[in-house]
């Protein structure tokens, strides 16, 4: 049975299910208890599961991840909320030097099923450090898995899959989509759902493949709809979903059909996910490509002040501009 809910509520419902299913699942973060998180994603969970399982932590991100590692070593399954993307860096050392590498260090004896929930991306008119897209730092680190949800239905099942995973998972939440609504099936099982580390064709098309993830999936879908309504190019939209590991087969299949690819993300272009996708597509689909792979991304600048962020963020026009340039070849 599906229900209509916002993306934020869908994550809330997913956390609730995971906590009901496994008493070892605990939530940790700043202001996640009584306040329910600054985005209210954990609203009501402390009331229902108690302060032992929904823990308001001291204001120290390195401490959140470091102690989550210890709790995981003791058999718990911590789900950490980092309040904003720009506040994850104090925890960066614990994430890349410890969390990512302990399974390798222990020759497979230790697993660290820690989920790090990270509201990411811009578009909410915030001050500095509240609109970052740090995904490439984590995707570059072996031992971590990195996923991004793009809709309420995906958010609900992907958070449950991330928590059930024995890997450390960076779970990217598109914060500007928290209030967007969609149909959610909270009953669908973690095993029966679409796999966590798989990319997905959301819209079929014939002229150009557009790959996006997180908040940009909506933009890519809108661009495809706009192009179709104006008898423009037919765009095939793929939601990448898993940023590490990458699931390339659906992308290769699509590019062999369309001959063209545009990658869209908010993060700066240089060494972003688009770089890796372009490299892999030219390695595998070189003779199918009719044009270079192009990217519509944030610029190689710090995230700008809010009043100019609309110019920084790829939008429908920027995506269609890249598509046009791709098709002009």
């Amino acid at each position: 049975m599906t229900r209509t809910m916002t993306l934020g509520k869908a994550i809330n419902a997913g956390l609730r299910t995971a906590m009901e299913d496994d008493p070892k699942v605990i939530l940790m973060g700043e202001d996640i208890g009584r306040l329910g998180g600054v985005f209210r994603v954990t609203d009501g969970l402390q009331k229902d599961f108690g302060e032992d399982r929904v823990i308001d932590t001291p204001l120290a991100e390195s401490g959140i991840i470091g102690t989550a590692i210890g709790l995981a070593l003791r058999g718990y399954r911590p789900v950490c909320e980092i309040q904003f993307d720009g506040f994850v860096y104090p925890a960066y050392d614990q994430i890349v030097s410890q969390l990512a590498k302990m399974h390798y260090r222990s020759a497979g004896r230790l697993t660290l099923p820690v989920t790090i929930r990270l509201p990411f991306g811009g578009g909410i008119g915030a001050v500095e450090h509240h609109s970052e897209s740090p995904e490439a730092y984590f995707a570059h680190t072996a031992g971590l898995k990195v996923v991004a949800c793009s809709s309420p239905a995906e958010a609900n099942v992907m958070i449950r899959q991330a928590i059930a995973s024995d890997d450390p998972v960076i779970f990217l939440e598109p914060k500007r989509r928290y209030h967007e609504k969609g149909e959610v099936d909270p009953e669908i099982s973690v095993e029966g759902a679409f796999p966590l580390h798989a990319s997905r064709v959301l819209r079929e098309g014939t002229d150009c493949t557009v790959v996006a993830y997180g908040p940009m999936v909506r933009v890519a879908m809108d661009a495809a709809a706009a192009a179709a309504s104006e008898s423009g190019p037919s765009l095939e939209v793929i939601d990448l979903r898993s940023l590490s590991p990458l699931d390339m087969d659906p992308i290769f299949t699509s590019v062999r059909k369309t001959g063209r690819m545009v990658v869209v993300h908010e993060a700066p272009g240089t060494l972003g996910l688009g770089s890796e996708l372009a490299a892999r597509v030219q390695e595998e689909c070189f003779y199918s490509l009719e044009a270079p792979v192009l990217r519509a991304t944030g610029f190689d600048t710090p995230y700008p002040p809010a009043r100019v962020e609309e110019h920084y963020l790829p939008d429908l026009d920027r995506v269609l501009d890249a598509v046009d340039r791709c098709l002009a070849h």
Binding site: F87, R307, E309
Partner: peptide
Amino acid sequence: TFRGNDQGGWDPADHNFQLYTIV
């Protein structure tokens, strides 16, 4: 800064007053 026009518009040297770090 809070209006989103900039990220700290004054010259710290003029006032001996540093910009906000926010983190």
